[in-house]
Structures are given as C-alpha cells and as structure tokens.
Design a binder for these strands. Structure first.
Lengths: 228, 228
DNA sequence: CTATATTATGACTAATTTGTTACATAAGCA
DNA sequence: TGCTTATGTAACAAATTAGTCATAATATAG
C-alpha cells in the first residue's frame, strides 16, 4: 500500500541509509545516482514519490525537478528535496522550484519518514496506512478489511483499491482514465470500459449494506464518491 | 526464544556483571571488548540485540552503531547504548544516532533487564518470553508449547515460529516476503510459495481445535491472523 | 418523443493466485 | 548407522479475479 519511492542520491552511503529506512517502513524503493538514471527509471514506472539530492553529478537536482514538473505524466509526482545547504535563501529557492518539501542534511531516519508521510498524506492519501471512514463504512489498509457498521464486506483486490482510492478522494469526479492511472497504475494498458465493470463489482459488494449509493455516475465525465 | 545479546564493553568487570545478569535471565550472550571484535561477531551470527558502550578503545560506540545501521543485514538489530554521560544533550544525541534506548551508568541489573525487555517487546515481540494467548489458544515460547484450551497441539518448529509471530502481530496483513523476513530470518533465500506450504501445515495443526480459522488468506496481499 | 450517446450488466475466457499433495533432501536423534 | 522428523520445491488442482465483449437500459439534446 505504501508505494514506490525513488531515491536520487549519488553518495552510496546516504542512499543506502535512506533505502533501508524506507524499506523498514514498508516502502518499495528505486535508486538512481544521476539525473539520467532517474529519468530512465521514472520513464519505466512512475514512482509515488521522489527524494532528490540537490547536488548531483552533471545536471543538478533542481534541473531534474524542472523536468519532472514540465512533463504532464510526471508533473503531479510529489518530490522531496535533500539539501546540505541550510541557508534561508536556498530553502525558499528549493521550495519555489517545485519541491513539495525539503530536508536538510544531516537528517534522522525518523524525520525522513515523518516528512514522507506528511507529503503523501497531502498528495496521495491512498498510499498511507490510515483507516478511512465515512458514515460507518470503513476501509483499513493495514488489516486489508472493509466493514460496514462493523460487519465485513468481501470484494476482490481491485475493488478494494478502487474503494480505498475513492474514500481518500471523495466529492470529486474522476474520469476512467484517471481512475486507471491512479488505481491500476500508469503504464497499464486496459480498456476504459473495464472501469465500468469494476465499478459494477464494487457496487455489488456494497449493495447489501446500502453504501453503493455513494458510488455515483457522472454522465459524460466519470465517477465520484460522495459522502451524502 | 530469548535470543542472543551482544555485549560490547571494554571494562571487564562491567562486562562480566552484565553477562551474568543476562544469562541468569535466560539470554545467550556474546562478548566483545572492541568495535572490531564486535563487527567480527556480528558478522558470524546476527545477535537479537546489542548493548554497546559509548566509550570504547579505538572507534567509539557511536561509530559502531553507524556501521550497524548502514548495513542492510544489521540495520534492524535493536541497540541499547551504555553511557556514563548523563547530560541531556548526549542522551538526545545518542538516540538520534540510531540507538533504540540508552542506559546511564551506573545501572542496576534489574534496570538493564527491564530495558532489554522493553526494547525487544517493541522491536521484536516474537523474541520475548511472554506467553501469548488469544481466545484460549496459547503459545509459550519458554516451554515451546502450544495449547488449545488446555490440550497440547503438535507442530514443527517453523510452524511454531510462524504461529508465534502471528500471535504477536495480529490483525495485520503480511506479505509472503515480510513473513519470510520476520519468521525465517533475513538473508535466507527461499521461495515465496514456501510460506503457503507452512501456512497449510500450521492450519492442519490447528484444524482439530478450530483455531485454523484465525489464519486468514488475504488474496492479492498475503496472510493475516485475526482474533475474531 | 426520437435519435444518439453513454452507461449498466451479464456472460465468457484468460490469467493469476492460492491450496494441496508428493517427493527429495537435510537434519536430528537413538 | 538407520530411523524419524522437518524443510523446501515442484507440480497440479481449485478457486478467484481480471479483462473484454455483446447487449440492454438509460439519459439527454434537439
């Protein structure tokens, strides 16, 4: 559930430290030691977040962020910048340049994990482990359970992910394409209509508890989860 | 079950005192009087916890912790630091540098044992000696016995460890990889599907008492032990 | 109210995941 | 050593899930 994090850092020791810290916290990791390598990895599979060192050989971290932000596919990927510089100006500059947050070296593993969690909570709540609840419908990513006023509902993995995404992104219409990207992952090639079928299956799973009402069709646009 | 504890301490008298205390409490011990020696011992067999003196000849305890934390194999080993310094700054620094807890000299054997137990309970509850019990299903790490409402169940060692891990980590899904890491140990290389087979064997062992219901499959995710 | 676009649904097949058994090997013990 | 137990794998069976399509139902513009 906790997604893939790309580490762009050229100092092996630091990269390793970050790597193990993140893995211990249940994240998958990817490592790159240069901007080129990072771009290549991002190209193959969009990470859920990137940690980017400010100082890199060749093109700098700033350049990488610039590139990430200018590409439609990657522009919404959360980015945290790692920097040895502590000057106020630099901090402001770093944020200004498109990072979601920054961490000044040296940092503790605890701080790193906390920052990541904060950014993910804001930018990709479906990747956190928090229990989500709406009017008695509860989704628990840790136990991997859905309950309606206490009793368990059963559904397939895709329906679980779909519901979890909806419940962390309520009151907003998503097109089928957006749902495919967000719930199925980018780079997967399936028909848009497939979403309809899974919506159907999710509704069926929710039907007997009445929560299927929350999954609403928005004609010509897509689907929406509404709390009311 | 109470695992092996590495003592890294150069003062023989103190080392001896700790050694005796721990052995009396059922732990196995390893002793090192320098960082080099400690590294050598850790290399041969990963202890379940390390007690490390802050002040050591040559490289300091801090350096040792740094090394432990930067190696994938050892990074999750719990560490308790022994320090003569009592200043607030040092305490904070010690924790910051990667120790799980610290004990200020002089300390009582009772305190030492309590701290170790606390750290193990937090970091590796399956290593403590406490009897674990759920709805009449009881696992006793000391006698290495499982009983269902009083009468004994028999199962192999792996199934025992698996059950013990589950019962100390209930209501949470674990992937096969996570179970391999936690129950089989790190740097073992076995197939993921092996977990399935042992789950099967564990279920068989629990079957006649009905407790096999607690071992639940979460399709697409892994397995979970549920109390209900 | 009809034509058209859009969505819902059921059925089918393919693909994936898990359960189970059997077997070869290793380890432990008498 | 010979016997028992434990372990890891492979192989096959069973169950579940995923994706696609055809068709029915429904909404909306005009």
């Amino acid at each position: 559930m906790t997604g893939t994090i790309l580490i762009v850092e050229d100092e092996p020791a630091i990269a390793e430290l970050i790597d193990v810290t993140l893995k211990r916290n249940g994240h998958h990791t990817l490592r790159a030691s240069s901007v080129e390598e990072a771009i290549h990895l991002i190209d193959r599979a969009l990470p859920n977040l990137a940690l980017i060192d400010w100082m890199l050989p060749g093109a700098s971290g700033i350049d990488l962020i610039k590139r990430i932000r200018s590409n439609k596919r990657t522009q919404s990927m959360p980015v945290i910048m790692l920097t040895a510089k502590a000057g106020e100006d630099d901090k402001l500059l770093g944020l200004y340049k498109g990072a979601d947050d920054y961490i000044t070296k040296p940092f503790s593993p605890r701080e790193l994990v906390a920052r990541i969690k904060a950014v993910l909570r804001r930018r990709a709540p479906q990747l956190t482990d928090d229990i989500v609840e709406t009017n008695g419908l509860q989704v628990d990513p840790v136990t991997h359970r859905v309950t309606a006023n206490g009793d368990a509902l059963r559904m397939g993995p895709s329906e679980f992910r779909l519901l979890h995404f909806f419940m962390t992104h309520t009151e907003r219409v998503y097109t089928r394409t957006q749902l495919l990207d967000q719930v199925w992952g980018d780079h997967v090639f399936v028909e848009e209509r497939t979403v309809d079928v899974h919506i159907r299956r999710l509704r069926q799973a929710l039907e007997k508890s009445g929560y299927d009402e929350h999954i609403q069709t928005v004609r010509g646009a897509g689907y929406r989860f509404s709390k009311s």
